[in-house]
């Protein structure tokens, strides 16, 4: 599923967070959003699955098209949208339920009652998220007992279970140790064949390791978008160069 933002403006009350964002995200690719804290990266991905709707002062203008359909169109059902556009959060946030029920949750809320199908999907999702071998013998244990890295892979499994077409990741590794980070990056590599992945990251090495496209955000604007290999080797904008060489941010 390809994503396109057209003249997107977002504000919370008086503060104008995103200014005239125009961006195209090709399907089945990994796109990294980089930039200093508070530049609007998270706000941008939270606009794609309309998580910002939960904040009362949220206002927007412009369009975000998923395969050509505006997600803010009045005919769009948010429940359905979020089923198609999954999200993995910065801090692993499994529910205080069993490992199995964490993954089954999405299926159950969307009305799935066939236990056999649920069991099969839970297993497949845990396998896709590369955590099955670690948890297969303790599916009924609480997910809260897993390590941070395992919890984050479980959250990815939970997202995959409802068969989204886009996965948004908001700094998925920032709370994890280096080994867990590598595991998640490996996973992202493998998932991109099936999903369109948009990932916010503070870590530029991570952007170069996992993404094919990178957009550089600064103060609510996109300064530069390009193929990752080109953006980091040969940035066109001076600000991009300053940021990726570590002169600010």
């Amino acid at each position: 599923m390809k994503i396109e933002a057209k003249n997107l403006n977002v504000s919370f009350g008086e503060s104008h967070i995103l200014k005239n964002i125009n961006m195209k995200i090709p399907k089945n690719s990994v796109t990294a959003l980089i930039g200093p804290s508070g530049c609007g990266k998270s706000t941008f991905i939270r606009s794609i699955n309309r998580m910002n709707d939960l904040i009362p002062s949220f206002q927007h203008d412009g369009e975000i098209l998923l395969d050509g359909v505006d997600v803010y169109d009045s005919k769009i059902d948010v429940v359905n949208l979020r089923k198609q556009v999954g999200m993995v959060f910065q801090k692993p946030n499994p529910f205080p339920k069993s490992i199995f029920e964490n993954v089954a949750y999405g299926l159950r809320i969307h009305g799935e009652v066939d236990e056999e199908y649920i069991e099969k999907t839970v297993e497949e999702s845990l396998k896709s998220a590369a955590i099955w071998d670690e948890v297969k013998d303790k599916l009924n244990n609480s997910a809260m007992g897993l390590s941070g890295g395992q919890q984050q892979r479980l959250c990815i499994a939970r997202t995959i279970a409802v068969s989204p077409r886009v996965i948004l990741m908001d700094e998925p590794c920032s709370a994890l140790d280096p080994i867990s980070t590598l595991k998640i990056e490996d996973l992202i590599h493998r998932l991109k064949d099936e999903y369109t992945i948009v990932m916010v990251t503070h870590n530029m090495q991570q952007a170069t390791r996992v993404s094919e496209f990178t957009s550089f955000f600064l103060n609510g604007e996109i300064i530069e978008s390009n193929r990752t290999d080109q953006l980091f080797v040969n940035p066109k904008e001076k600000k991009t160069e300053e940021y990726i060489t570590g002169r600010f941010g």
Binding site: R82, K83, T159, V162
Partner: peptide
């Protein structure tokens, strides 16, 4: 924690489902 609720909304749960299936059990 509001992160539980976010996780639930992020999967497409309604407010009612989130309250009854995630918030209340916790």
């Amino acid at each position: 924690p509001s992160t539980y609720k976010e996780g639930s909304y992020g999967l497409g749960a309604t407010k009612l489902q989130t309250i009854f299936s995630v918030v209340l059990p916790a």
